[in-house]
Computed example of a mutant assay.
Amino acid sequence: MNRRPFKQVDVFTETPYRGNPLAVVLDGSGLSTQEMQHFTHWTNLSEATFLLPPTHPDADYRVRIFCPGRELPFAGHPTLGSCHAWLEAGGKPRGEHVVQECGIGLVRLRRDGARLAFAAPPLRKSGPLPEEDLALIARGLRISRGDIVGHSWCDNGPNWRGVLLRSADQVLSLQPDAAVLAGLDIGVVGPRGKVGVVAPHGAGEEVAFEVRAFFPGNNGMVEDPVTGSLNAALAQWLIGAGLAPTRYVAAQGTALERAGRVHVVQDAGGEIWIGGASVTCVDGRVTL
């Protein structure tokens, strides 16, 4: 075992312990997949990442992203948190953007003032959800089918199903039934029962949308504090459908007493960037 540089970063917040935490091992060289997965379980966090030398000539670093039970090809808050940790540890991008290599390929990141932002990766699946899924989601969220006023596949690696409700208050009052939503896993390969819920705030509010993210865990349904991959896919859907402006801020984590803020911008070329602040809460070494 070696003592390796390590940071625990809170992502999508400027205030420590109000965002979504991430464990970052800054030198994952020589660790096996099993060792990375075991350490991820030990942290008891939603994700841990391991930074490695890039294998692609255009990348600044490579990252492997793990959650309890499996490795992920891409995830948003681990992307921002890993980049924050890499830069804070002295990483220097070779070009205008930081280029991260991960399971889905290359992801570009840019500095946006005090925040970092990543370019939303292409959707692997889009378009309306099947009606049988919507009926199950409505039952699982304990709402009527008519309360869902919009819906779309939001798959950019993690296979999210996105549903739009009428109001932020309705989103915040949800109390999902884990047993019902777990039925979304039936008959498919891999964990697929991920549901993202979004609704607009009123005019003049600090944030434009309220977001919540639910997925099956070892002890029933889990709610994610702040979810970059989901917000990226929601932005592609909502902006593309004319349901959101080309620049807005989404809140997530409110129901968990967090204060996540996701900054969404569609640039002049049509590319969507997902940004947020990150703060380091733990800085030291870990024995692995």
Rank of each mutant, 00 (worst) to 15 (best):
D224W: 06
T287N: 14
G127H: 02
N44Y: 01
V282A: 14
R62C: 13
H41Q: 15
D58W: 04
V99W: 04
D169P: 01
R110F: 09
H151W: 05
G240P: 09
C102F: 04
T13S: 14
G69A: 05
L234Y: 00
I186P: 00
S167A: 09
L51R: 04
E223Q: 08
H56F: 03
A117S: 10
F50C: 03
Q100W: 11
I104Q: 02
P78S: 10
E131C: 00
G69Y: 05
E71Q: 14
N44D: 10
L184H: 00
L72Y: 11
Q266M: 07
C83S: 04
L230I: 03
G242H: 12
P68S: 08
P216T: 08
N20S: 10
V99G: 08
E71V: 06
P200Y: 03
D224S: 06
H38Y: 01
P128T: 07
V262Y: 00
R111M: 11
L109I: 03
I137W: 01
R166H: 14
S167F: 12
L288N: 02
G204D: 14
P225N: 05
F6T: 03
H151F: 04
P158F: 03
E257L: 12
A244T: 06
V180L: 03
P21W: 07
E96C: 11
L106Q: 05
E88V: 09
L80D: 00
I148V: 15
R111Q: 14
I137S: 01
F215R: 08
V9M: 06
G95K: 08
E205H: 11
R70D: 15
V98H: 03
T79L: 09
I104C: 08
F12P: 00
T33W: 09
L31G: 02
P68D: 10
L51S: 05
V282G: 01
V197T: 12
L164M: 11
F214P: 01
G187R: 04
L136V: 03
V25I: 14
L45Y: 04
R139G: 15
S173V: 06
A199G: 08
N156E: 10
I272L: 05
V107R: 00
P57C: 06
V226D: 07
D267P: 02
P57A: 11
P21V: 10
N20F: 03
G202F: 02
V63M: 15
G81T: 04
V63I: 14
V189C: 06
A244Y: 02
H263Q: 02
V279R: 08
N20Y: 02
L256H: 07
E271Q: 15
S126W: 09
W86I: 04
P176L: 02
V222S: 14
E206R: 12
R192V: 11
R212K: 13
P121T: 05
